[in-house]
């Protein structure tokens, strides 16, 4: 028989539970939460900003903001993941960072799937390299929408919440991003048949 759990004390998802414990003074919970969030957050921020160094700054700032505004988080209104994504993207899309030009993530770019044969792997690697270069020409918000959609598998509504936009606007960001990428990749393919 399941023990009765009052509605206000339902067990939250692990991240939310850790954050609530950390907010209550549990430093070990905060450390555990930071370790869970840091890696994926740097990856997402690096995709948005096109630069691991700037991504590191953004994630650092986001953690500071998360801690500073801890009292404002209300678990009844949603999980920590959504709250954190919004804080992280706010830091990454901050105007001061947006003004700087993004560079292709050459060193940290996608790696080809090692399973296919050498020829296919080389072709995939070349395709990924071109895509990473084309990405540098997209505005950060379009890159953020593409990263959240293809990387995190979020719905339009979730992406909209993370970016502080409407689902319709997110559709526009994705469409324009893909159109720009297609045009860039076609131009590169034309130059190098």
């Amino acid at each position: 028989m399941q023990p009765f759990v009052p509605p206000d004390h339902r067990p939250a998802d692990p991240d939310t539970a850790l954050f609530l414990a950390a907010r209550g003074g549990d430093r070990a919970a905060w450390s555990a939460l930071v370790r869970r969030l840091a890696g994926p957050s740097v990856r997402l921020a690096a995709r948005v900003l096109g630069c691991p160094d700037r991504a590191e700054d953004a994630v650092q700032e986001a953690f500071t903001n998360l801690w500073r505004t801890a009292h404002r988080f209300d678990p009844a209104r949603g999980a920590l993941a959504a709250w954190w994504r919004r804080i992280l993207l706010n830091a990454a899309l901050d105007d001061r960072r947006r003004l700087r030009l993004a560079e292709p993530l050459e060193a940290a770019g996608p790696t080809p799937d090692p399973a296919p044969g050498p020829h296919e792997a080389a072709e995939t690697a070349e395709r990924d390299r071109r895509l990473a270069a084309a990405m540098a020409h997209l505005p950060p918000r379009q890159r953020a929408a593409l990263a959240l959609f293809h990387g995190e598998g979020l719905t339009m509504a979730e992406i909209a919440h993370a970016l502080g936009a409407t689902p319709k606007a997110v559709e526009g960001l994705l469409d324009r991003g893909r159109a720009t990428l297609r045009a860039r990749l076609a131009a590169v393919a034309g130059d190098h048949p």
Binding site: P52, A108, P110, T111, T124, R127, D128, L146, G151, E152
Partner: peptide, 11 residues
């Protein structure tokens, strides 16, 4: 390609 780009670890 977009999925690989978005999911690749930074290492």
């Amino acid at each position: 390609a977009l999925a690989r780009w978005a999911r690749a670890p930074l290492g």
